Computed example of a mutant assay.
Amino acid sequence: MSRDIDHKHCEGCGVELQTEEPSRLGYIPPQALEKTPVVCQRCYRIKHYNEMSSIALQQDDFLKILGEIGHTRSLVLHIVDLFDFEGTLISGLQRFIGTNPVLLVVNKIDLLPKVTNLNKLLNWVQKQAKENGLKVADIVLVSAKKNIGFERLLEKLDQHRDGRNVYVVGATNVGKSTLINRLIRDYSDLEAELTVSQYPGTTLNLVHIPIDDGSDIIDTPGIVYKHRLTELVERRDLNALLPGKPVNPMIYQLNERQTLYFGSLARFDFVKGPRQSFTCYVSNSINIHRTKLEKADELYVEHKGKLLQPPAEQDLDKLPSFTKHPIHVRKGRMVDVLISGLGWIKLNSEEGAELEVHAPRGVKVAVRDSLI
């Protein structure tokens, strides 16, 4: 049982404290309420372990933060996950931040096959950002986990910052915390400078990290996008969805009226078209199963949560039911079919196809020009 905390606020970031949900803002273990100062778990970890934990905000609260940025003179560091580019891009960002420049940091490039041409990848990102209405001052390709591209990121920060504060924004699970920790090491003596008294007093839980010229790097909580499969699965299945190492692309030669199941998480139907190959870019932990379209429903009923997993059988009822997305790919296009939070399926020919994707209700399904 948690004790009544009488609406206390964190003496570090100012957020209202709560003892019920560790994943929400303001969590404090009940026993820590007896300590002085009274700070939330996130502030405690920042000060004592240099750890920037990913606390999530719902969309309305996050938009309030973006709106405040629009009234400042700042550089916005927008971190996206290359493995879920469309799913982690903050739509409408430009409307909220005004004329402040955006440095787009594309993380997790280490998950792509090593033969990937980075110049082509950069061109693809530029095109996708423009199509999504995002004006960027620059783009940097990085791997926070593998420390790839970080020197270039520092160069671009120095080039575009011009004495401005830097707001770091991004969705959950894009690797924002890892990048923030690297920035702290390069720009700030955290032990000497980041004390409880210097934490901001705000219920939005912004964390200001002082840097050498009197400006701040301002960490914002990760935004929760419910259109990503990663936000719907149980924590034990998250590791299966999020690749920890480069993906091994799986190629399938399919005739029309064949189906691919990605565990029990999604289904891809090749409804009509000439025989062609499809390459699946998903975590190596995802079990892909091929069957005939006429047997697909029966297979799901009999084997969901067993042969077809993740998720395991006990977690299936926590996922929304499947919604069908018909997709027409005209001849002459090289496209990917993205299932946000899972990965994508590349069509390897320009023959055109009639497809259907079945994914949990609310999960974003999109067609885009091929990434690779």
Score class of each variant (00 low, 15 high):
D6N: 14
H9V: 11
C13Q: 00
P22E: 08
L25S: 13
P29R: 12
A32N: 13
V38T: 13
Y44A: 06
I55N: 08
L57T: 10
Q58F: 06
D60W: 00
D61G: 15
G67R: 11
H71K: 15
H71C: 09
T72I: 03
R73H: 11
S74F: 05
H78Q: 14
H78I: 09
V80F: 00
F83R: 09
T88Y: 01
I90P: 08
T99W: 02
P101H: 06
T116N: 07
L118F: 14
L118M: 13
N119F: 11
K120P: 03
L122V: 05
W124K: 02
Q126A: 13
N132L: 10
G133L: 05
G133V: 02
K135H: 13
A137W: 07
D138W: 06
V140F: 09
V140A: 03
S143P: 05
K156A: 10
D158N: 14
G163I: 01
R164K: 13
N165H: 13
V174M: 00
K176A: 01
L179A: 01
N181K: 14
N181T: 08
D189K: 10
P200H: 11
G201S: 12
L204F: 12
H208P: 14
D213R: 15
V224H: 04
L232P: 02
V233W: 01
V233H: 00
D237W: 15
L242D: 03
E256Y: 03
E256I: 03
F270A: 11
G273L: 13
G273M: 12
Q276I: 01
Q276D: 04
T279H: 01
T279M: 13
C280P: 06
S283G: 01
N284E: 09
K304S: 15
L308P: 01
P311F: 04
A312H: 14
A312E: 10
K318N: 12
S321P: 04
K331L: 04
K331R: 14
R333L: 11
V337G: 05
K364P: 02
A366C: 05
L371C: 07
I372R: 08
